[in-house]
């Protein structure tokens, strides 16, 4: 690692001021992503501002009709919190499908939203990468692009956003609370992460030095019918090739509300509202799930080594919809169940 200054934050405003004092300032929470990137010299902050001293809020608190998650709480404490397990089991399952138990004990909710892509070229400072060094080109487009995106790519970047937790937050319609030089903001989850477009160096719409303080979940947690399915190269402790979060509200045999979010296929958690509207009022059958998958994957664009992804995603959507009908049958580690 390079030499840098370390500062433990004493308050939210202190953290914001400290990190903004240097153009190269960064927050550190669990450290599981930023320290790793620093070891590869991909991140080179001049000062690291530790936000852990701000972790005085409850992990989960009642808020409006829903709940508020602390940004500084660990992924493990969030996933195993009785309120989350009971009211938002999709979120619990998605978090537990990510990384390993040790990493989840360290990783925080705020840090999870801001983890960076696992694109191999982004990590390798000897190769061109527009996300790491704007204007140098994208090594992945003509390189080994097996893990890369099939939706929403640009000619400048085809990277995937790797979080599992965020796929569930997208499906649940979370809101991100922030605080910064410009004051507090509430950002709907769909507007939080970005597509690469002409600025792949920007993963999200946070302002420079803006701090995430909490994540709000709306009242409806879809605890009756939900599933998270993660397909990957090994059964556990690997990033998704494709992951799917599905939640339903059912009225007898009919779907009164459906949400489907995908991970591993785009630069942000992927939701297609047309597909969700299509399912509304329909019976919960494989034919309807397949038609919804068709809508979601329209316009998929593949690259040399990831042409398997649209078919994998199509099958994963159908399977996950079936799993959501009987959540009790789900296996540990978000693996496929019958």
């Amino acid at each position: 690692m390079h030499n840098f200054r370390y500062k433990a934050a004493t308050s939210v405003s202190d953290a914001v001021v400290e990190v903004n004092q240097s153009a190269e300032g960064q927050f550190v929470a669990g450290g599981t992503n930023v320290l790793d990137l620093m070891k590869y010299f991909v991140a080179k902050p001049e000062v690291l501002v530790d936000v852990n001293p701000l972790n005085s809020l409850p992990v989960v608190s009642e808020y409006k009709e829903g709940v508020r998650l602390s940004a500084f709480a660990t992924n493990a404490d969030t996933a195993y919190h009785p309120i989350i397990e009971k009211r938002y089991p999709l979120l619990s399952k998605a978090i537990l499908a990510g990384a390993s138990a040790q990493i989840r004990n360290m990783a925080t909710n705020g840090g999870n939203l801001l983890q960076r892509t696992r694109c191999y070229y982004f990590y390798d400072v000897n190769t061109p990468c527009n996300k790491r060094e704007p204007g140098t080109g994208c090594s992945a487009i003509r390189g080994y692009n097996r893990m890369m995106a099939i939706m929403g790519t640009s000619e400048h970047c085809i990277a995937v956003f790797p979080s599992d937790m965020c796929v569930a937050l997208a499906a649940l319609g979370a809101v991100v609370n922030t605080d910064g030089m410009q004051g507090k903001r509430e950002i709907p989850f769909a507007d939080f992460h970005r597509l690469p477009g002409d600025h792949p160096e920007k993963d999200n719409n946070l302002l420079a030095g803006e701090l995430i303080t909490g994540i709000d979940l709306p009242a409806e947690g879809f605890a009756e019918h939900y599933a998270y399915l993660k397909l990957r190269d090994r059964n556990s402790y690997a990033f998704a090739l494709v992951s799917v979060a599905v939640v339903f509200r059912l009225d007898g045999d009919l779907i009164s509300e459906a949400r489907i979010a995908l991970g591993g296929i785009a630069h942000k958690p992927w939701r297609v509202l047309d597909a969700e509207l299509y399912l509304q009022g329909k019976s919960a059958t494989v034919d309807h799930f397949a038609a919804a998958a068709e809508i979601i994957l329209q316009g998929a664009k593949t690259f040399e080594f990831n042409s398997f992804k649209p078919e994998l995603a199509r099958r994963a959507i159908i399977r996950c919809c079936k799993m959501a009908l009987s959540p009790d049958t789900q296996l540990p580690g978000a693996q496929p169940s019958a």
Partner: peptide, 13 residues
């Protein structure tokens, strides 16, 4: 009491 990774932990923290 919690299992964590010491390689991704800064001693100062």
């Amino acid at each position: 009491g919690k299992r964590v990774l010491s390689c991704l932990t800064l001693a100062v923290m």
